[in-house]
């Protein structure tokens, strides 16, 4: 499906290398919601220590893919392997054990509205560890310092701006020092400065903590700037994948439309409909 930039036949060695070094291996993944096909036979590899982006138009199942990787949704078919574990087949305790090693940043931040910023970040530590209070405090302050919000520790989530809430959520997601972190639309609806901060944070955390990052987004410019590898999903399929530079040179007209943000092209401006004139004036002779 689609026009692969790194086609298997002319760069087989590269594909194998990717498969061996990948933390997350998605193979033949299909998912349907009420008979509607969301994902159809999707193959994706997420490399260790890299930032991998999953891009595509809104409503193409990017978030669904994240939820399947996180074990919150069950795929119809196919396998999802994280660090050698087959996610859909895990028992609940094993899944929870795996989730302790994964962080997820939700679109809205999803901070617990009845807890302060400090308590939000401390939450995973308090639930999953038996560390003494003083150590928890130090850890929380370190994480908050990393996202630059140590000064906001006493605030309630309602008092934060959207960008600050996301940064706190990020601090919370890295509280348990996960091996992998998933970002769901981290840039959507943020002002340029906040977008810049979040981009810098994603890169910084990935480098300093040795994380593996998955970003789900449709913001072409930002993602191209920080991602090591990009998968583009549309209509349930992987349309293309490659490094940002490779995708930029893609010959596919659809890809060019997506990257440049053109209103019309292979992806039509109009939702499928009958002929406009016919619908307005009625069928001739009627």
């Amino acid at each position: 499906m689609g026009n692969r930039v790194n086609a298997t036949n002319n760069n087989g060695a590269f594909v194998n290398e990717r498969a061996n070094d990948s933390l997350v291996k998605v193979r033949g993944l299909s998912f349907r919601r009420n008979e509607r096909v969301i994902l159809e036979k999707v193959d994706i590899d997420i490399l260790r220590g890299k930032i991998t982006a999953i891009m595509g138009p809104s409503g193409t199942g990017k978030t669904t893919l994240l939820r399947i990787i996180g074990g919150q949704l069950h795929p119809l078919q196919g396998s999802v392997e994280i660090d050698g574990l087959e996610v859909p087949a895990l028992s609940t305790p094993d899944l929870y054990e795996l989730r302790k090693r994964m962080g997820m940043l939700f679109q809205t931040g999803a901070l617990f509205s009845d807890l302060t910023v400090f308590e939000n970040v401390a939450f995973p530590l308090r639930v999953h560890t038996r560390l003494p209070e003083s150590l928890i405090r130090d850890l929380v302050l370190m994480k908050l310092q990393a996202v630059g919000l140590r000064g906001a520790q006493a605030l309630m989530p309602a008092e934060l701006s959207g960008g600050m809430a996301r940064r706190v959520a990020l601090a919370r997601a890295i509280a348990l020092d996960p091996m992998m972190i998933m970002y769901d639309e981290p840039f959507t609806g943020q002002d340029p400065i906040t977008v810049g901060i979040i981009m810098k944070l994603i890169q910084q955390l990935n480098a300093t903590l040795g994380l593996t990052s998955i970003i789900v987004s449709h913001d072409v410019v930002e993602v191209s700037a920080i991602a090591d590898y990009i998968y583009v999903i549309a209509e349930g399929h992987v349309m293309e994948h490659g490094t940002p530079a490779e995708l930029g040179h893609s010959k596919s007209p659809w890809m060019q439309q997506f990257l440049q943000g053109l209103p019309d092209g292979p992806a039509p401006f109009h939702y499928p409909a009958s002929d406009f004139a016919t619908e307005l004036f009625g069928a001739p002779g009627a």
Binding site: G70, Q72, Y96, E97, R99, K100, M102, G103, M104, F106, Q107, T108, A110, L111, F112, S113, F123, P124, V127, H128, A169, R172
Partner: peptide, 22 residues
């Protein structure tokens, strides 16, 4: 319901905490 809307329940699940228990 609002916790569900704001993905707090989902976030809790992803933090390996069962929202039913918590």
């Amino acid at each position: 319901g609002l916790m569900k809307v704001t993905e707090q329940l989902s976030a809790m699940e992803m933090m390996a905490v069962d929202p039913v228990k918590r």
